[in-house]
Design a protein around this nucleic acid. Structure first.
Lengths: 357, 357
DNA sequence: GCCTAGACCGAAACCGTTTACGGAAAATTA
DNA sequence: TAATTTTCCGTAAACGGTTTCGGTCTAGGC
């Protein structure tokens, strides 16, 4: 009980040699006799010696820890990214310290500070909705600590970033709706100050433009959290307005599911009366009623890529090579399911309370 | 660029004093003159001095890091627990190193080892499905490092544990079905070697016993991962067997949702033809079709409690007080929604292909 | 003028490891 | 045999802090 972990000093004492010799023996240095090497190795094995990474960190000025800040852990997409990060870091021999900002700028700053103080070798961060100021990240750059931004990026920062093609994702989602014959595309979007939402929004507008459909601001609603209830409410308002949309593009699956719930309680049929498209491809999107058309985001791959790029820059720094600041854009994929599939001509006859477009 | 962080040595040199004095001045020791204190403090502020936690860890033999192992990060319940852990640790000044075992025993052992080597001050672990052997945890105990098990616990380990009342959760879920008039309760369960599933299973059996309904093994199916597709398949098989259940209790919401999907494609009406109850209360359980009755598990609270107990034992260890090994059991809560609510007498007339019980 | 008690600060050990440097003994060469 | 090279290991500094133990200086008491 309460054993202290065995150190090189213990081995040295037992063998009547110095810790320097033990250290060299363990690392198989050439100027240690085979005899001593064998003795050290076997005693280390017997005592179950494990090197103290803290002492190593101090000595080598390297912690082998990556800092990670996400807006929320309880979020399907982000948890997927986190999973990719953790896995990739592990195979490279790094640990991950995880923090969540809860979409709060102040917390994000505090956590970035704390991780910096912890001497992480690199930082992976997806920024909070509310973050505008970026001094807390620039401090990392001043210290030469590599940073990789993912998903929620900031354009003022000259660092490596990994995003998905949100513009194209938004564009294709809306284009798909237009191809199905929709002409009044409602939009549930997030704050435009957040890059990913802004890009999806541009995709929305450009898709409309391509089909020469005038932009109508009445069809656009903002949700801050994509909360189910909130988006149900938003949808209900849209449907009760004079000029009803014939389709809804929601920038998150949770929002789309909220919309589906509202539409169901209002007795609209999906997709006959109104089509719905989400964003992210949650696991459950395939089992909603009807199954949800959505834009798949490669979360795991994003985590993996971001980590690989970060590790690359950490190594580059160690070799005093220049760090590169790539801009990786991963492809999204539109997954068409029943919620938007209008099979022209074989639409079932209307029923319910008869809302039709 | 590439500034090294400033150390006490820098401050000492600048002020012509020794690091010992700097250290004491910063910690407001009484035997430092107000003059030097002020000088040190203001220079530290000016140079933006931050203490190096690695040096501190080495000296104090304390890392202020908690190790965390979960079976899967991409999992609504676990991510909720992780969130509670991270938040609670942060306010106490601890960081969290996160790992996932992917339900693999070998990985779990490897990660427990790695965290032990990292000199974490404590370990929070929810064990993999496949874990039977517990030597990797006993090693922590040997070194006197506090461990807290949560959710997926092991009865052979004498450590603090935090679970939800899975037995009662299972019992109440099934009792609810029986109260609704169901008599043939199908069960989609996980491996019984996993404590939580075993307890829910006991709850299932005891609820049946209470209502004097004989246990029928034909109604019980096992799923290892509660994968949507797999559970759809399982449900389909159950419904195609000679003796069909009139209700299904699934030990996970994902399994229940898979069941709902299968029932819908088989044109059964829920809850009129068959009732469904899940377990966990995912966010989306409220928006399935129909909304899913389920057993709410307080994930965040579990993370919070587990962390508080762990921190308590870490402190106790430091004060050489005895550690206590509490067994906390958090309450579950049955959330009744449409998927199981049979309002006797006002059932709508059957339609669809006419499956009835 | 001497002794003593604070007040204030430095010296040094320590945490566990790496590594440049040096040095003694053994082996090789001249 | 003496000089030189190897072989093999110890010494000590360093990483960035904390803490014990003293030591010097000044002020006060007698």
């Amino acid at each position: 009980m309460k054993n202290q972990p065995v150190t090189m000093k213990d081995i040295a004492r037992e063998l009547g040699i110095t810790v320097a010799t033990v250290s060299r023996a363990l690392k198989n240095y050439p100027d240690i006799s085979p005899t001593t090497k064998k003795a050290v190795l076997s005693l280390a094995q017997k005592l179950n010696y494990r090197p103290n990474p803290i002492a190593l960190s101090l000595r080598k000025r390297k912690s082998n820890i990556l800092g990670l800040i996400v807006p929320e852990i309880v979020h399907h997409f982000f948890s997927t990214v986190v999973s990719g990060i953790v896995e990739t870091a592990e195979v490279a021999g790094y640990s991950v310290m995880i923090c969540q900002s809860n979409e709060s700028y102040k917390r994000e700053v505090r956590e970035a500070q704390a991780l910096l103080d912890s001497r992480v070798d690199g930082l992976l961060i997806s920024m909070a909705n509310t973050t505008k100021n970026i001094e807390h990240i620039q401090e990392y750059i001043q210290y030469g600590i590599p940073v990789v931004l993912f998903d929620r990026v900031n354009d003022d920062l000259d660092v490596t970033r990994v995003v998905v093609d949100d513009y194209k994702g938004g564009f294709e989602a809306v284009e798909h709706l237009l191809e199905q014959g929709c002409r009044k595309v409602g939009l549930i979007r997030g704050p435009l100050s957040v890059s990913v939402f802004n890009l999806r929004y541009q995709g929305y507008r450009d898709a409309l433009a391509k089909y020469q459909i005038p932009f109508n601001p009445d069809f656009v609603r903002e949700s801050t959290s994509f909360d189910l209830k909130e988006c149900s409410q938003i949808t209900q308002e849209m449907m009760e307005s004079a000029n009803r949309p014939d389709s809804i593009f929601a920038m998150a699956d949770s929002a789309a599911i909220g919309a589906l719930a509202a539409l169901k309680s209002l007795k609209y049929r999906v997709p006959e009366d109104i089509s719905v498209v989400g964003f992210s491809n949650w696991q459950m999107a395939s089992v909603t009623d009807p199954p949800l058309t959505t834009v798949a985001q490669p979360g795991y791959e994003m985590g993996q890529t971001a980590t690989e790029l970060l590790l690359h820059n950490i190594e580059a720094k160690e070799k005093e090579e220049p760090q590169n600041q790539e801009q990786v854009c991963l492809k999204t994929r539109l997954i068409v399911r029943e919620s938007s599939r209008k099979i022209m001509g074989i639409l079932t006859p209307p029923h319910g309370n008869g809302h039709q477009i």
